[in-house]
Amino acid sequence: MEYVIIIISAVFVNNIVLAKFLGICPFVGVSAKTDTAVGMSGAVTFVMTIATIVTWFIKNYILDAYNLEFLQTISFILVIASLVQLVEIVLKKVSPPLYQALGIFLPLMTTNCAILGVAIEATGNADFGLLHSVVFAIANAIGFGLVLILFASIREHMDLLNVPKVMRGMPAAMIVAGILALAFMGFAGMV
């Protein structure tokens, strides 16, 4: 039951993009087309889950064990950066089709604050064991993917609208995101 609550809370109530404002750069950057949005969601799910597992072990068995909490930011970002490289190399060798699909999005992962944000949040929560953290990471990735794909399909339709010139592009997209956030506020109180 607690896992169900973690999932509903991360996907709908405290959505990573619309309520916590993490991963805005890819959210506005790759949401112009639905295809790229799907690819990006896949890459985020993959990297976010692995990154959370690895940082969980680092936090619990190295940083906490030797009182090195102040190194958290530096160690996490280095681990994530090298992990992204590693995933890219392994994927290229093991599964070329998957590499083709995720390829161009993988290098962007290092500066995606959603990855680091979820890792810090999952490892910083004292109630979370390893399994909780993994479920939390996957749920957040699903929340990210859901909103990204929703937003991309809305933006595809928006190309056909006659928007005032100064509002064209990013300002209009931001207001759509605001309305989407307003809709997601309706889920508040579910958990």
Binding site: L18, A19, F21, V166, M167, M170, P171, A172, A173, M174, I175, A177, G178, I179, A181, L182, F184, M185
Partner: peptide, 22 residues
């Protein structure tokens, strides 16, 4: 209240970008 909450952030930023363009 919506302006303090999440939707206001997106809508406010959208208008600021448009104003800066003008």
């Amino acid at each position: 209240l919506a302006f303090v909450l999440a939707p206001g952030a997106f809508i406010g930023l959208g208008y600021l970008i448009a104003i800066n363009r003008v």
